[in-house]
Amino acid sequence: MTQRIASYPGTALSEEDIERGRVLSIHDRLRADYAWDAGLAIGRYLDGLKAGQILGVRCERCDRTVVPPRAFCEQCFAPMDAFVPLAGVGTVNTFSLCYVTWDVKRIAEPLIPSVIDLDGTSPPAGIMHLLGGVATDRVRIGMRVRAVWKPARAREGAITDIRYFKPLRRG
């Protein structure tokens, strides 16, 4: 202390105070719960997945079939309600070997997100999913793949009712 001040007021900060977040920041938690109405087009798509079927929808004006289905054509703005079943077979449009998880953990075996252009869509339209049952060094653009489904009793009307897409042919 100095000649004039015997002791300073207040409480000293400790390293523990900072480590435990007792100072310098405020912690809070947001409760944000939603229940999105899937709607006509996506509702029917999810129903189809539960039944083990991938549904697309056709725009006759634009002469194209798209997946996932939507209630309207974003190109010509006409309604789209002609649902067509697709074979669940397609071609890898693009892919990535991802070595970090959703919650940012390093993984040795990568996830392989991919956009797969499904047969029967025109021009080729894809769904975003995962590739599986394939060695990472064998994945190629243009590879032919098919959907691998969960068992019927485990399906719940969700995009995850398809486990992943795997190569049509071995090797």
């Binding site: 999105w36 006509l40 209630a71």
Partner: peptide
């Protein structure tokens, strides 16, 4: 519950464009 937000907006948009006599595209 019968419509997604996209479907609600689409319906309103179709009506507005018909009312105005315009093609959004």
């Amino acid at each position: 519950p019968e419509a997604s937000y996209k479907e609600l907006v689409y319906e309103a948009a179709v009506r507005a464009y018909a009312d105005a006599g315009v093609d959004p595209r």
